[in-house]
Amino acid sequence: MSDMRTPLSRVRGLGSAKKGTEHFFMQRVTALANIPLTLFLVGALVVHAGSDYATMTAFLGNPFIGLIMLLLIVSAVYHMRLGLQVVIEDYIHGEASKLLALIANQFFAFTICVACILAVLKLVIG
């Protein structure tokens, strides 16, 4: 029986990336984690919408609050990075611009993640 693959596929010689359902699975895992974490963030935003500096830093400096904030940052950034990747792949069709957008997505997500972690660590550890 002849090869079912397209000529283009055969020329490229690329098999499966062996990543399978990782994107989908991690998108759902982070989505699940984001539910309680996001509810916490909304609560924190609302309670502290008008807080002064001392109240806010005391709140964010609490190690338990800091832990939740760190989990939220990592989970939310992971989730949004996966999400925007799909949006880019759906709407940007030029290979070069798509690649640039995908790299920009990575850079943005990691920068936000590290910046937020740095801030929380400084608030908790001092």
Partner: peptide, 27 residues
Amino acid sequence: TGVALYAGTVLLAWWLLAAATGPEAYA
């Protein structure tokens, strides 16, 4: 909303970094 929340993390980072920087930045 997903894309908006993506952009909104800049505000989250600003809020946290300002609180970590000091009273003037937080003001």
